[in-house]
């Protein structure tokens, strides 16, 4: 495990990570504002050109939903917005949490009660000494 320290490399990597994360947010905002999400060509009515004039309307109302069922918090747009917000907040939050709160590079706090070697919290048996870790693993 590497010990984390701020230097040019880590700054560049963290900046790239934040930019990539932001790209999800930007795309989500674009979808939110453009009014395009989920509507596709089939709702907008200009699909007939692409479909060679074939009439595919009517049969899809069951799948596509009522046209009036759109809005910032409803229908496609609202759901996409929620995806965008949750993905953005979750990714940025976990990134920052890991960088600043967890003091990265330090050993894991969980250890076997018998041999005191580091163990994962979801292990039920210590792989080093065989001690049962069930009580430890199921402890909230």
């Amino acid at each position: 495990m590497k010990t984390f320290q701020w230097n040019a490399r880590t700054i560049v990597i963290v900046a790239v990570a934040l930019l990539l994360t932001a790209s999800v947010g930007v795309m989500g905002i674009w979808l939110l504002l453009s009014g395009q999400p989920g509507t596709g060509m089939m709702e907008s009515g200009d699909h007939t050109e692409m479909m060679g004039g074939m009439d595919i309307s009517g049969d899809h109302t069951t799948m596509m939903g009522a046209p009036a069922n759109r809005g910032l918090l409803g229908g496609y747009t609202g759901a996409v917005g929620l995806v965008m917000i949750l993905a953005f907040v979750g990714m940025v939050g976990s990134l920052l949490y890991a960088l600043f709160r967890e003091k990265p590079g330090q050993p894991q706090p969980a250890a076997c009660w018998n041999c005191e070697r580091p163990v994962e919290t979801d292990w039920t048996t210590c792989p080093y000494c065989g001690a049962a870790l069930v009580a430890q693993a199921t402890r909230p």
């Binding site: 989500g28 999400p37 989920g38 799948m63 939903g65």
Partner: peptide, 12 residues
């Protein structure tokens, strides 16, 4: 979102 009928949502 009807993601299955939307290429853009699928792409997102």
């Amino acid at each position: 979102t009807r993601a299955s009928v939307s290429p853009l949502i699928t792409g997102f």
